[in-house]
Nucleic acid binder design. Structure first.
Lengths: 219, 219
DNA sequence: AAGTGGTCTAGACCACGAA
DNA sequence: TCGTGGTCTAGACCACTTG
């Protein structure tokens, strides 16, 4: 065991750049929505190369701390971002917003698939697909390829958003999953984008007692 | 040398490198656990710079497709990795394994914290902390800083793993969260590593009907 | 000693948005 | 036009593992 207080191996430069920016956000110097230094400004300020700054900022963007617009600038993300890799958010308006698309669109592909493993229901997948993105969706053979894999092939997805919650699902879902009376379900709502168009929106129900989600993040 | 101006394909080079490796995995040319090309080999094979290869491989590692060991090589991750950013896994052995550490260690710091927002309980946080990583943990003021933030300060975390599931929590937790009779909870088990040592293991319970997790992934 | 990943530099060209 | 992010190069030094 060695002392944790004194850091023998110094942080890599890009990590110091990340901490520098994070510190400004934590201290309130940079409020959510505010613009942060441009990459070139950080280069001059911290005397590091732009590739190092770029990596630092890119990782902060991916982890949700910052957002950036090419040609405009880099900004502190609106939601509280300094904490965990996964954001805990109030459920209020977000889900309605998600559901709005399928309801508003005239023609939408819809599939309801139950996935089994050894005759045990694993997942009920209720998916809506944008016909403009995957016009042949209904002709695909979902016994040999999952809808997600199919979508990845015909229109590479650029962005995926997951909303995860726990719920006691409605009766039809409970029956499909063969849930016990008060067994909870893990519900995932997944929205995918292809370029700027929304490609699909899926609601996935899993038996809460038998399955779990796992995510690993290296910081 | 390289004419980027005449490059009509929309995909950046590092994305092509990623697809090149992904294709070899999907086709079975590279099986889980197998070694893939080194960065220098990919540089020679694809005629791109090493920084471009490095970014491609680094992103595949972060998304769980590959894993790498400095001085040894890069390998296809064991678990099914070509599909979703979040992996759905069987619950069987994993959680026991997680719980093994606090049970096996002689001295472990333990905190049980209930987080409120406007007098409404948001989260019950049951956390075990490795004293070797944060010897002053019990002296921290968790009214002004969250345990996760405190750990980030005293021993920067290098890796975070989340396991998410739905459950009807035990009665003490139900009481703390003021859950309705059959309201489900969203349970997160979070393990963090500092360098190679496990820093903490926390179980977080959230009211299933009022809160959700959100994760966004750009591919 | 050779190979590997980890990091970093000091430039460069591009597309895009704002002025 | 100018600043922004997005990408890419062709080197480099380092720590580490393996033979």
């Amino acid at each position: 065991m060695r002392a944790a207080a004194t850091d023998l191996t110094p942080l890599p430069l890009y990590a110091k750049v990340k901490n520098h920016v994070l510190q400004q956000i934590r201290s309130g110097e940079h409020r959510p929505g505010a613009r942060v230094q441009s990459e070139h400004e950080l280069v001059r300020e911290l005397r590091v190369s732009r590739m190092t700054v770029n990596r630092a900022v890119r990782e902060l963007v991916r982890s949700g701390v910052l957002s950036r617009i090419a040609g405009v600038g880099t900004f502190v993300a609106d939601f509280r971002a300094a904490g965990h890799p996964l954001q805990i958010r109030n459920i209020a308006a977000v889900i309605r917003e998600q559901l709005a698309l399928p309801a508003a669109t005239r023609l939408v592909f819809h599939s309801l698939i139950v996935h089994f493993e050894n005759d045990v229901p694993l997942q009920v997948e209720d998916r809506y697909v944008n016909p403009a993105v995957a016009p042949e969706y209904l002709q695909a053979d979902f016994a040999s390829i999952t809808p997600h894999e199919y979508l990845m092939e015909v229109a590479p997805l650029r962005r995926v958003e997951h909303v995860v919650r726990a719920a006691l699902p409605p009766l039809p879902i409970r029956r499909l999953l063969k849930l016990k009376p008060h067994e909870a379900a893990l519900v995932i709502e997944r929205t995918t984008w292809s370029k700027s168009a929304r490609a699909s929106f899926a609601t996935l129900h899993h038996p809460g007692g038998r399955f779990e989600l796992r995510g690993v993040f290296d910081i």
